[in-house]
């Protein structure tokens, strides 16, 4: 079921589109990745969803109806550019932000205690924010974003600045939030975390979303018929067995075995390839190379660039 929908969203900043006819659909209870190079318009889109800025045209629908200011206050939003009051104490500040989100004082206190213990930052409660490291501050920001258990969470570059251990801690929590029923939109350049977390993605490049869909479909769509074969035997014999429908991309060693990557050109399939090479060498493994999101990202963005140039 769709949870949030952007319809033909346009936003211009001084004669230049920040967003141009952007459409996207975020399914309920999914983790939705908002990808794109720097300056593509991701943050602008997030701000429009949050009603911090208004779109010039188009609208945002939440569960099928137009989003209202009251809805926004139930969103948990962790902006990319984020800070805290430096001179305020950590505990006081967390209480303030939690209450500002509409939590009762007692609830806020209880929940904060739970999270502070979980993230092992309880001893920092009475410290001033300026005494904390950046990573520490980010933990606090994360906590104050999710403290009121919102249905919709928006994270803008949540993992930047974290060491791998804390980044993992956060990822686990994000997944748990999804289990509990939240819908999560998150924007990042970090493709690794996209593969780990996201169900759906959209790729925004220069104000347009140029790719949208479930992450599995997209990867399938961008695979390029390359297979990797580990084998025992003479590589030359293997090459000789192939005809013009195949191209050997590279030869290498893998797990102490010989391996090749072969691209299927056209009018052929993996079964034919197997039938050709089995007589030549002993096949140890055979698998299709699925592109990483990193590959997809680079490929799509470059294609888009070339289209523009033509």
């Amino acid at each position: 079921m769709e949870y949030l929908k952007a319809r033909e969203v346009n936003k211009k900043f001084i004669n230049q589109y920040a967003l141009h006819n952007v459409n996207l659909t975020v399914p309920e209870n999914s983790i939705y990745g908002l990808l794109g190079p720097n300056g593509a318009g991701k943050t602008t889109l997030i701000r429009i969803i949050n009603r911090i800025t208004a779109p010039d045209e188009g609208d945002i629908l939440l569960k099928g109806r137009k989003i209202k200011m009251e809805d926004v206050f139930r969103i948990g939003y962790l902006p990319e550019e984020r800070g805290l009051y430096k001179k305020m104490k950590v505990g006081e500040q967390s209480m303030y932000l939690a209450q500002l989100k509409g939590m009762k004082k007692r609830d806020a206190q209880e929940k904060l205690k739970y999270w502070f213990e979980k993230f092992e930052i309880q001893p920092w409660w009475n410290k001033k924010v300026e005494e904390l490291s950046k990573g520490m501050q980010q933990k606090i920001q994360f906590i104050t974003t999710i403290i009121h258990e919102p249905e919709l969470l928006i994270f803008d570059e949540p993992f930047s600045g974290f060491d791998p251990i804390n980044a993992n801690l956060l990822k686990k929590e994000v997944l748990k939030l999804k289990e509990k029923g939240a819908t999560i939109i998150f924007s990042t350049h970090n493709m690794e975390s996209v593969e780990e977390l996201c169900d759906h993605i959209t790729l925004i490049n220069r104000a347009n979303n140029i790719l949208e869909g479930p992450i599995d479909h997209i990867k399938q769509q961008y695979k390029s018929n390359i297979y990797e074969i580990e084998f025992n035997g003479n590589p030359e014999k293997l090459k000789q067995s192939l005809n013009a429908h195949y191209e050997v991309l590279e030869e290498k060693q893998k797990n102490g075995n010989k391996a090749v990557r072969i691209k299927l050109l056209h009018e052929t399939n993996e079964n034919e390839l197997l039938s050709l090479i089995i007589p030549a060498v002993e096949v140890l493994s055979f698998k299709e190379i699925i592109p990483s999101m990193n590959d997809v990202f680079i490929k799509v963005v470059n294609e888009h660039k070339n289209q523009d140039h033509e």
């Binding site: 949050n50 969103i75 939003y77």
Partner: peptide, 17 residues
């Protein structure tokens, strides 16, 4: 100015007008 340069304003703005 403090709120603006500290970038706390965006956090607050998502919970209050």
């Amino acid at each position: 100015i403090e709120e603006k340069t500290n970038r706390i304003v965006e956090i607050i703005i998502s919970s209050a007008r």
